[in-house]
Write a protein that binds this DNA or RNA. Structure first.
Length: 637
RNA sequence: GCCGCCGUAGCUCAGGGGUAGAGCGCACCAUUGGUAAUGGUGAGGCCAUAAGUUCGAUUCUUAUCGGCGGCACCA
């Protein structure tokens, strides 16, 4: 007798072992038809999984969140089947489901072309139509290795070799295609439906290791129904319009050119945004009791050797020479800050000492890593180092997390993904120290009310790390803020303070940045707001424009009032129709347009029009200025 | 850096072995108009760079540089 508990709490009993599909059918024929998989005691299983003991039971249909994973994974398999049918020389490797879709990596000497994707996709639809049964089987590990080797699937064999001897592996087959897979899968290829599309072709290293050969990866997207697919494709299209590289040009914020690869040419409007952001951060740091400094761009090799960067970071450093000296353009500010700390004798009374710099850094990033202004070779960090005692780590970290969240909120980011990276395999410092650093960082993060996901082994060589990650319009994640605990650099560069006991002690160094870099953060800001910046950040806050030239003189008067009130305002008395000018400034994403014509000139009013709005508001000049002034007030004011 | 794709006017793109075209933008002229494109005229290009094939290359080939998408990297 087997008793199954359904999601609503009710129970069903069966005389003996039953398959998931049987249970679904027992509940209702409609459900059986819609069933894609079942969930038994929380584990997703194939529909024909035989249930042999009392369990919690639920049916997974296309309406479930989990179903997408299943669908995407199946789409990957069906793609692999299609590829193997079309190109028998190909070896299959790995094909997981990912966010929004799936991919599969293939090994093949001939290259896939974009045209091939069309053919493969067509074949996938045929396989769905064939509605091949998807069947699970189990083989002993060694037998499975032989099996795949015989098939010429050496990558698969290699994967199984990583599984401990004596274990069994599960295989899934559909038609003539068989793949190593943990499952679960749909009962047949027909269940995939039509809501999928192959999207791009890319290279990817075997097992993610750049020492290995490169495979050919095909990406696709897959959804529960065609409506979802259509929505997704539309969303991607819309997101492309928010790309900061495109908006940067359209809004005349900045440009990049090959003579200065990886460096930004900031135009007046972009630089205005940059300065506003910098002033804002500077204000926040002053409030939080940081002291701003500025340190050299060119620093002798010897300091980088002492800090360890020459050894660990040399490849990414730009080098210059002068007379017989080798100088590095600083890739980071930390060693310089330590130099300031080291001047004179420090007391425990000086701690925590918070030293901030808008530090201009250069890193010779691999060419393939560059991306708009998000990943550049010359950038400015909103960097700071907090020199403190071990006891102060928790309080400082907590205060930093709060400051960061505060800033992010002001800038329009309510949700931040936090990643905690713990000790890497190769590291400096004792395990005991790492224990201390990691738990202090964790504790403080929790105290700040943050939850994180673990990035195992991804910490810096000198200490654990918190990463604050924001997502761009296209769904790419970018690390912006960071907080790192460092016990190593103070030691290497001999930073010390005199403690209460009159003895020398090593301070701990906390490396931290809120924005990460101005370049990256402004890129994210542009995409997050789709270029429609809140008024306090908008490079041009208000445009005054005229209906006819009769109002030119009055428009100047209004302009004067706005300038006097401190607005970043522009006057447009171009001899064009008002429709044209409204359109022009709307495209430029100016938050407010003040239209003046004969009427307004006579009455001393302005017609206020908001970006994207249809209505206008007739206001006295003073009232308009007052209303806009409230909106233009930044978070610091 | 690696794999693939791409490089034609400021931007978006068409074209194609006989030295180039559109729309937008820009300039000039006319137009003075009530909230997302007024009309006309005109100026812009060593067709990324270099070599090769050819009577002739922007078009074909190769290399270089750069861009894009991934991968790897990202203290």
């Amino acid at each position: 007798m087997i008793s199954l508990t359904l999601p609503d709490g009710s129970k069903r009993t069966f005389d003996g072992p039953v398959s998931g599909l049987d249970v679904a059918a027992d509940i209702g024929p409609g459900l059986a038809k819609a069933a894609l998989a079942v969930r038994i005691d929380g584990e997703m299983r194939d529909l024909d999984f035989l249930i042999e003991k009392d369990s919690a039971f639920s049916v997974v249909t296309s309406k479930d969140e989990d179903a997408l994973d299943l669908i995407r994974h199946d789409a990957a398999h069906i793609m692999a089947e299609a590829v193997q049918e079309l190109y028998p020389d190909v070896q299959v490797t790995i094909g997981p489901s990912i966010e929004n879709g799936f991919y599969y990596d293939f090994a093949r000497s001939d290259k896939f072309t974009p045209e091939d994707l069309v053919v493969i996709e067509k074949r996938m639809h045929e396989i769905v139509k064939r509605d091949e049964k998807i069947e699970r089987s189990v083989r002993p590990r060694d037998e499975a290795i032989e099996f795949f080797k015989d098939m010429g699937e050496h990558y698969k064999a290699q994967l199984i070799e990583a599984i401990p001897a004596g274990e069994e592996v599960s295989l899934y087959s559909q038609g003539d295609f068989i793949d190593l897979c943990r499952g679960p899968h749909l009962p047949s290829t027909g269940r995939l439906g039509k809501a999928f599309k192959l999207t791009k072709l890319a290279g990817a290293y075997w097992r993610g290791d750049s020492n290995n050969e490169m495979l050919q990866r095909i990406y696709g997207t897959a959804w529960a129904n065609e409506k979802q697919l259509k929505e997704y494709l539309h969303m991607v299209e819309e997101a492309e319009k928010r790309d900061h590289r495109r908006l940067g040009r359209e809004m005349e914020l900045f440009h990049l050119q090959e003579e200065a690869q990886g460096s930004v040419f900031w135009h007046p409007k972009g630089w205005t945004m940059y300065r506003i952001l910098q002033d804002y951060i500077r204000g926040k740091l002053e409030d939080a009791d940081y002291a701003e400094v500025n340190t050299p761009q060119l620093v002798d090799r010897s300091l980088w050797e002492a800090s360890g960067h020459w050894e660990k970071f040399r490849e990414n450093m730009f080098i210059s020479e002068s007379e017989d000296k080798v100088l590095a353009i600083k890739p980071m500010n930390c060693p310089c800050h330590v130099q300031i700390f080291r001047q004179g004798t420090r007391s425990y009374r000086d701690l925590p000492l918070r030293m901030a710099e808008f530090g201009s850094c250069h890193r010779n990033e691999p060419s393939g890593a560059l991306h708009g202004i998000m990943r550049v070779r010359a950038f400015t960090q909103d960097d700071a180092h907090i020199f403190c005692t071990e006891e102060q780590i928790t309080a400082e970290t907590k205060a930093f997390c709060e400051l960061l969240l505060d800033v992010y909120k002001d800038l329009g980011f309510e949700e931040v993904a936090v990643k905690f990276s713990d000790r890497p395999p190769v590291r400096a410092g004792e395990d005991e120290t790492w224990d201390k650093a990691e738990s202090a960082l964790k504790e403080a993060t929790e105290a700040a009310g943050l939850s994180w996901t673990l990035n195992p082994g991804e910490g810096a060589f000198y200490g654990p790390k918190l990463e604050f990650v924001l997502r761009d319009a296209i769904g790419r994640d970018w690390q912006c803020g960071t907080m790192q605990v460092d016990f190593v650099l103070p030691e290497r560069l001999d930073a010390s303070y005199i403690g209460v006991d009159g003895e020398k002690h090593r301070p701990v160094m906390l490396h931290r940045a809120i924005l990460g870099s101005f370049e990256r953060f402004i890129g994210i800001l542009i995409e997050n707001h789709a270029g429609r910046m809140p008024m306090w950040l908008a490079p041009v806050q208000v445009v005054i424009t005229t209906i006819t030239s009769d109002a030119d003189e009055y428009a100047h008067e209004v302009m004067g009032a706005l300038l006097k009130a401190g607005f970043r305002a522009e006057l447009d008395i171009q001899n064009e129709k008002i429709n044209f000018k409204i359109r022009k400034h709307s495209h430029a994403k100016v938050p407010a347009i003040l239209v003046v014509g004969k009427r307004e000139a006579e009455e001393g009013t302005v017609a206020l029009r908001r970006l994207g709005g249809k209505d206008q508001e007739i206001l006295a000049i003073k009232d308009a200025v007052d209303i806009l002034a409230v909106e233009a007030k930044g978070p610091l004011a």
